[in-house]
Simulated scan of single mutants.
Amino acid sequence: MPALDLLADLVTTEWLAAHLDDPGLVVVDASVLGVETPAGFRWLSGLDEYLIAGHVPGAVFADLLEEFSDPDGPYSFTRPAPARLERVARELGIDDDVAVVVYDTSLGHWAARLWWLLTSAGVERVAVLDGGLGRWRADGRALETGFEPPRTAGALTLSPNDARWAEREEVDAIVAGEADAALVCALSASDFRGETGRRPRRGHIPGSVSVPVSSVVDRESGTLLRGDALETRLAAVPTDGTRRIVVYCGGGIAAAGTAFALRRAGHPDVAIYDGSLDEWAADPRAPLVSLV
């Protein structure tokens, strides 16, 4: 089976619709839902929405809450070890012979998280659907309901790139001025200022700048900003185009959306702080800056 050629790491609904029947393509719904409950905020799998409300025809569902996270990790979305990632990716039909397009029902940051997990592990042909399922629906394209059984996968060769991830020690060094990198917060501007937040300790990591994931997406179309519009949103990032950029949020999800946008804008050395504020704010010794 010849490999499908992805022209970029971001594809349009037009491109996907034209290639849906290609046997060398695996389409993945990576949606997660955030809901307020009487017990407080919680994340829920998007599986029910995928099954009942509908999905891109032929798309399989990826469980980012349980399968594509480390169940023994200290935080909700701790990235899985390579062996686990290989197993759960193959269970979705992903192998060395296919191209993968991922999407979600939100701002694209869940899809970007799965894109980041796969590409940083060495999966070569992966793209995000620009605008996600919202754009697909708005374009009047067909949906399917119910479960889509994955194809049987062959071998999946991984070659993890740990430089795409930042650990607590690196962030400590950046804050202390011992490492030359820019820190970017992908949470909302109000979370950055410390006005809002789900953690007892609010604010942002010292020295970081605010680039909310919502700011790199067009509000009307849901698609990623491009050209000058994207550059304007990223103008606050102190970099000459080669400096390393470490992006964080609450748990490494919104960070993936902003990090993806930074790579699309041509920044070659971008990393996600996987522990993000789940780890940083839990340490009372770790400084946080509040603007309120």
Rank of each mutant, 00 (worst) to 15 (best):
L6I: 04
V11A: 11
T13K: 01
T13D: 07
L16P: 10
A18K: 11
V26W: 00
S31Q: 04
L33V: 14
E36D: 14
A39H: 12
A39K: 11
F41E: 11
G46D: 08
G46L: 06
E49V: 13
E49R: 14
V56W: 00
P57M: 07
F61G: 07
E67C: 09
S69C: 10
D70C: 02
G73V: 02
R79F: 07
R79C: 07
A81R: 15
P82E: 07
E86K: 14
I94E: 03
V100M: 05
V101P: 00
D104L: 04
W110R: 07
A112P: 01
L117F: 10
V123E: 11
R125C: 03
A127C: 13
V128Q: 07
L129A: 09
G132E: 06
L133Q: 09
G134F: 15
R135F: 03
W136N: 01
D139S: 06
R141L: 12
T145M: 05
P150L: 12
R151E: 13
A155H: 05
A155F: 02
A155D: 10
L156Q: 00
L156F: 02
T157K: 00
L158C: 04
S159Y: 08
A163G: 09
R164L: 13
W165I: 09
W165V: 08
A166I: 05
V171R: 08
V171K: 14
D180K: 11
C185N: 15
C185I: 04
S188W: 10
S188F: 10
D191A: 14
G197T: 06
P206R: 10
S208A: 15
P212D: 03
G222C: 03
G227P: 07
L230C: 06
T232V: 14
T242E: 14
R244M: 03
I245L: 11
G250W: 04
G250L: 07
I253T: 06
G257N: 01
G257P: 01
R263G: 08
R263Q: 12
V270E: 00
S276Q: 03
D278E: 13
W280L: 06
A281K: 09
D283W: 00
D283F: 03
V289H: 15
